[in-house]
Amino acid sequence: MNKSRTFQFYMFILPWLIGFLALTAGPMLYSLYMSFTDYSGLGVPNWVGFENYQKIFSSDPLFWQSLWNTIFYTVFGVPLGLIVGYLLAVLLNANVRFMGVFRTIFYLPSLVPTVASSLLWIIIFQPDFGIANAVLSFFHLPTSNWLLSEQMVKPALIIMSLWGAGGGMVIYLAGLQSVPASLYEAAELDGAGKFRKFWNVTVPMTSNVIFFNLIMGLIGSFQIFTQAYVVSSGNGGPNYKSLFYVFYLYQDAFKFFKMGYASALAWILFIIILIFTAIQFKVFGSKVYYEHDE
């Protein structure tokens, strides 16, 4: 590592470095500072100490509601999305014919812009003439108000998210295809059946991609915003049951101009995501298999 190489290195990463300092590190510190002020977007921020944090935890029911909504969505949505994506990949990996066609069919929905897919699902879930209720009533099953129902709005949003599970499928498929065939042969010689092979070879050998999708899925899920904004026309209804964390943060910052308060919310979100990520590393990290590269 000589000096001129170091200089060159910094010249190459300069765009990112400037962006990092000006648009990430600097704003992070400033947002931390703002979280201790009453800044409203105009005038000067006044230092209020821990007041925002105190208010958030002790007397803000919408904070707890939005946090609960988000955790519900994450705890059910992320594992379900993971299972559906993995299942699709396993099916495609079974040497099927027309694999490319099936893969395209499963992948395309994940390309659809969230706003467009949300509008589409509003029609599907429409209580009076939507197809979801039509199918349910055809089988004499109870129908639902879906996106207009306090109980069903979150499950409905989870169903919507499963339509996009093909994005994860592509990643799993690549992982599945890189499992060496010799491992399956060795397992067969040891008398392993279908399910033993799946549990003891396939799953462990693809644990790195599963883990990657789990971490990224969780971070993404905590930031759910657009779907909820579109289906509730921007108010988080019915009765705040679709008011997710980032949605609430957005409202505070850009509708009510409580910039200081929203900054405190942002930092709490950051810490929650850090904790959840650390837990995942602690629980699953040691079980993940990495192939040795380099």
Binding site: F20, P27, M34, A253, F254, A266, L269, F270
Partner: peptide, 19 residues
């Protein structure tokens, strides 16, 4: 760089908006 991939953009969103 890897760390910033985990940072929720909401943490920087408000100051960046102000800039």
């Amino acid at each position: 760089l890897l760390g910033t991939m985990m940072l929720p953009p909401q943490v920087t969103m408000i100051p960046v908006y102000m800039i």
